[in-house]
């Protein structure tokens, strides 16, 4: 009887700090655009959550009356805040379209069909269909940068 091949080595824990485990892995080989997209998706997601937390408390000043609102708005009317707002719009655009790609990969036939792994071992889930949505996300993020600059600075 043929014996099953089993690993006798214990699973190795991923070593390294947060930057190693959450950021550098995306830049290690084998490199691909999808790994970078996941990194950007996570960074933009955490950034947008931070902004949302801040935004809820900033807009809460509306209950303090006109003076409170105008006071907060005068603090936020500066170029640094505008750059932050631009990053929010660009991050939200990329995050949304790339998120739709990920959802379609999870829920639709876009994930590809199971196939015998022959050389050169092309991953079925990394096909051109999903990659075109990723390119669309990057193009839309670029266009939202232009739209954001026009709206925020009135150029």
């Amino acid at each position: 009887m043929r014996e099953a091949i089993v690993s006798i080595e214990p699973a190795k824990a991923v070593r390294g700090n947060v930057i190693d485990t959450q950021v550098r892995w995306a830049l290690r080989r084998p490199r691909n655009l999808e790994k970078l997209a996941l990194l950007v998706q996570r960074v933009s997601g955490v950034g947008l959550l931070g902004y949302l937390f801040f935004h809820i408390f900033v807009t809460g000043s509306v209950t303090g009356g006109r003076d409170a609102w105008d006071g907060v708005m005068s603090i936020l009317s500066n170029p640094s805040a505008h750059i932050g707002e631009l990053l929010v719009v660009v991050g939200a655009t990329f995050h949304a379209i790339n998120g739709i790609r990920v959802m379609l990969l999870e829920l639709s036939p876009l994930v590809g069909r199971a196939k015998r792994p022959d050389y050169p071992y092309k991953v079925q889930s990394l096909g051109k269909g999903q990659q075109s949505i990723l390119y669309a996300a990057m193009i839309m993020a670029g266009l939202s940068t232009i739209a954001g600059i026009v709206i925020l600075w009135g150029l």
């Binding site: 959450q22 996570r42 997601g45 955490v46 947008l48 959550l49």
Partner: peptide, 13 residues
Amino acid sequence: HGLYGLRNILLEM
């Protein structure tokens, strides 16, 4: 959505 995503990232760490 934001907090669920943050939870997933933290649980992976």
